[in-house]
């Protein structure tokens, strides 16, 4: 137990140093952050505006009105942003694998996966957080949400869980490069799938697809189920559970499993130049 705490302290200590370095990097390249500052909010705000246009033409989508969609969209973008900060490197794992960039992580006395993500922490992801918060707050107002301490706790727990689910999926996809020896950038693919399944209610998909998104690739827990529960929208899967906590559990499970898959893949790592 004492050893575990000491280890945790070690990782926290390194994390603080790494975040400090990430900020120093931003200072070195102010033009880059400015670019993402503009590009990321535009992308999501315009994306949300188009949803608004469509839903206003039709009234609602599968029983979700416009305010509820904003709530869902905003929360989903927030967990997306957090996953961009901590786990986005998973998309590019193929490059690291083929360029031999895991060499240095393997020769240091810390978890390889931890070093891979945290020494490449993407502080720029903060720029995604802003539109997420804006649309979320807008959704809260539209839905006239009662902001109680328990509500805030649920939102926070859900965000952590959702970020872990996303991160786990990125790790899983990235780890396939140990087997395929390909530098395939999963960013586009992952983003596409995640957008389609977390920004809109998955109840619009057929049962079979919903089953997959609930139990096999548990993306439904990223936003759809917890938001349904928070807003009191009926769904047979929920059964009165406090869903945000389920999301956290699912997140822990997904990240553990994909961590194991990564570890198995790492044994096949070939460094570079062979």
């Amino acid at each position: 137990m004492k050893k575990a705490f000491k280890e945790l302290g070690h990782y926290l200590d390194v994390t603080i140093q790494v975040i400090k370095m990430a900020f120093l990097t931003i200072v070195e390249y102010p033009a880059n952050i400015a670019g993402w500052m503009i590009s990321n909010p535009i992308q999501f705000i315009v994306g949300f505006a188009t949803i608004k246009f469509v839903v206003e033409s039709f009234g609602e989508i599968n029983g979700w009105n416009y305010g509820q969609l904003a709530f869902l969209y905003g929360l989903s973008v927030m967990s997306h942003a957090l996953s961009m900060i901590f786990f986005v490197q998973g998309w590019f794992m193929g490059y690291f694998v083929l360029e031999g960039d895991f060499d240095r992580y393997l020769t240091r006395p810390m978890s390889v996966l931890y070093q891979f993500f945290f020494t490449n922490i993407n502080i720029f992801g903060i720029t995604d957080l802003i539109p997420g918060i804006l649309v979320f707050v807008y959704g809260c107002i539209k839905c006239a949400v009662q902001v109680t301490p328990f509500f805030v706790l649920q939102v926070l727990v859900m965000l952590i869980g959702a970020t872990l689910i996303r991160g786990g999926i990125y790790i899983f996809l990235g780890s396939t490069s140990f087997y395929t020896k390909s530098t395939t950038d999963f960013g586009m693919y992952t983003q596409e799938i995640m957008d389609k399944t977390t920004l809109y209610p998955i109840s619009m998909y057929p049962e079979s697809l919903q089953f997959i998104l609930t139990y096999l690739i548990p993306i439904g827990w990223v936003s759809f189920y917890p938001v349904s529960s928070l807003l009191g929208i009926e769904n047979s899967v929920l059964n009165g559970m406090v869903v945000p906590f389920v999301t956290l559990l699912v997140g822990l499970l997904v990240i553990t499993l994909s961590g194991l898959f990564f570890k198995a893949g790492l044994k096949k790592y070939e460094s570079a130049g062979n």
Binding site: A31, N32, G35, S39, N40, I42, Q43, T50, F53
Partner: peptide, 28 residues
């Protein structure tokens, strides 16, 4: 501007949204 990655992304998303590739403009 040496790094145009961000701009490429902006362009990609803007074009997707205002070209009618996902949502036709008659809904706008």
């Amino acid at each position: 501007a040496v790094n145009i990655d961000a701009l490429i992304q902006v362009k990609k998303h803007l074009i997707r949204l205002v070209s009618g590739s996902i949502i036709p403009l008659w809904f706008f």
